[in-house]
Amino acid sequence: MHSIVQFERVSLKYDQGPSVLEDVSFKLSPGTFHYLTGASGAGKSSLLKLIYKGFKEYRGTIQVFGNDLRYMKNQAVSLYRQKIGIIFQDFLLLEHLTTLDNIALPLRLRGDGWLHSQKKARQMMEWIGLGGFEEAMPSTLSGGQKQRAVIARSVMNKPKLLLADEPTGNLDDENAAKLLYLFEELNRGGITIIMATHNKDLTTEFPHPIIRLAEGQISIHPSFRCESSVNNV
């Protein structure tokens, strides 16, 4: 099957520091759900950052949607990022915009009209359980609400790939479980998900293949739904 994300002998290191990733190769099939685990500082966020082209300097080849990221021009990066959804642990909502405007933003970036994007964002807020908070400023939302707002924003463009960096880090167990139910629903809708986490309980409760990062190397622990492979590209 054609892969959605493919790493081929990818190495990454910060300046003169130790290698974060060392000759990492793997590929992920469309529609899969993978956890990305590892100790703090193992390189989980860096790997996600490589996928959304947050780094320029790395060795090896990274292909996403069949495009080699190294040869992607600056102008094309914006359009590429519109095709992926990114969820950050610290939310990164725009504090000066209302929740509705934050969620509608990806559609505005795509060039959709104000009315259309507002309407779609309202529908999304209802679906994700944030109905009634349209005009609320992000600072007034709880951690769980903020996380749902970020998820809503990240899936507004109907991305094919969703990258989540420790999305449950600021949530209690109940909200973390709700989030995973939501992710599974999105995954059933065809979105490929890579979720960085160090919450072992969640990975047990909601079993999916795990990409484990340790000392610059990765290992993939397949599950019954795994369609990924490691070091065999």
């Binding site: 947050g54 914006s78 590429y80 990022r81 519109q82 970036l109």
Partner: peptide, 15 residues
């Protein structure tokens, strides 16, 4: 930081 967020979610420079 706002610009960084906008860029992460796919904002073009002209936007």
């Amino acid at each position: 930081q706002v610009i960084e967020i906008l860029r992460l979610i796919g904002a073009e420079d002209r936007f």
